[in-house]
Design a protein around this nucleic acid. Structure first.
Lengths: 223, 223
DNA sequence: CCCCGACCACCATACGGTCGGTAGGTGTCG
DNA sequence: CGACACCTACCGACCGTATGGTGGTCGGGG
């Protein structure tokens, strides 16, 4: 390849003391890879880029990974596990279905805002994985989507939502509005994650609930 | 390159009569490119792939285009123009702000469902364009987002929405739920584009409107 | 003294892009 | 009416470069 090295000089030996224990390096690698995939996309980010950022040579990466695809899998897998844990824990708590729906949306949005980069990589590059590994992550049930759909369905069985609401479409609508956040949220923007989460949750709840149900929870939720 | 040709044999002359006039070929090229970008992404789809599908050699593509990026630009530009026309036309018609919001969402969703592939390419690959050309398409005002935000804002000025609704966030929420559709809509699925459009529109309107405004339009909109 | 963590040289491949050519149709002019 | 020029649409060989991936090597800390 003749150009396996970093752009410029550096002909002297790598500075001593940069050797790090495996675990630490591995975490660093995941972090750097996530960032690179975010900036350039999976195809656009080369192992060279990642190695450069880590201060290693490209070949050395293969001490930690088997292939580039494995790296993506690892990154995405971790993001999904975390996010799903947050969401399903919020959905499982106490309260009536509308309360839980509201809380779950807030949790999801806040988590996405605070983990913008990994979230973006997850939503963008999931499809860069071959189908098999993709479904290994999602679980064949498309779990994320199921959480919201099930909450709406449960609310509907309790008579808390309008009759013409389709829980499946409603769930996907909520997922869409919350998963869109990573595209426009800026930490230095006019709204905090909490505010955005509260707004989106309120819109979703009002979007599906009956007038009665809304009136009943009027004491808890403003206006 | 030595391997510029299609995978297998085909050593005989190209079947006669495949020559097409410029305009027709250009349309075909845009269509094939859109499809390939959809299937493999911009980076993943090679000019070789596109040429193969057209029954040409890669080099011949340069009779029609200047660069691969130009091709993407053309594709995305066309999609955006169409979609934006649909949406802003719906938003501009008669009716009170909530009516127009509802109609606009329906139009947007139905258009997206009926143009799944181009829509997906637009939403996925917009960021594969360099910033300059991206903004040339979007117009620096992020027009799409503005349409929904403005409709909500107008409704709010007319006292039709809850006071705590932030038009900016509401607009982005609507954009998110509608732009998510391309990820799950299937023509052979359980819902038609019209049904989905109506559902999402109803959720959005209920999501922002006051109880009074909803009661007032009860005659027009079910439940 | 061993083996961890990394170096370095090296493939094969595939890509975007360039360029000189050429077959066939069309127009033109004697 | 025929021959000659010219344009359109495409061919096919080629270039430079970057990429993912491999394998052999080696210093130094436990």
């Amino acid at each position: 390849m003749a150009q396996d090295r970093r752009p410029a000089g550096r002909s002297e030996r790598r500075a001593a003391g940069e050797r790090k224990p495996r675990e630490e390096r591995w975490a660093q690698l995941l972090e750097v890879a996530t960032q690179m995939f975010y900036e350039k996309g999976y195809d656009g980010a080369s192992l060279q880029d990642i190695a450069d950022r880590l201060g290693m040579l490209k070949g050395s990466l293969y001490y930690y990974i088997q292939s580039k695809e494995d790296l993506l899998f690892e990154v995405i897998s971790e993001v999904h596990r975390e996010g799903f844990a947050v969401v399903s824990s919020a959905a499982g708590g106490p309260g009536d279905p509308l309360d839980r729906l509201e809380r779950t949306i807030r949790a999801h949005v806040e988590h996405a805002c605070r983990n913008l980069v990994p979230t973006a990589v997850f939503l963008h590059e999931l499809e860069s994985l071959p189908t098999a590994r993709r479904e290994e992550i999602l679980g064949s049930g498309h779990a994320y989507q199921g959480v919201f759909r099930d909450l709406v369905a449960e609310a509907q069985r309790a008579g808390l939502t309008r009759a013409d609401v389709d829980p499946r479409v409603a769930g996907l609508s909520i997922l869409g509005s919350t998963n869109w956040v990573y595209r426009w949220f800026r930490a230095d923007g006019p709204s905090t994650p909490e505010e955005i989460g509260a707004q989106l949750a309120a819109m979703a709840v009002h979007g599906v609930a009956t007038a009665d149900a809304l009136a009943a929870r009027g004491a808890t939720v403003g206006a």
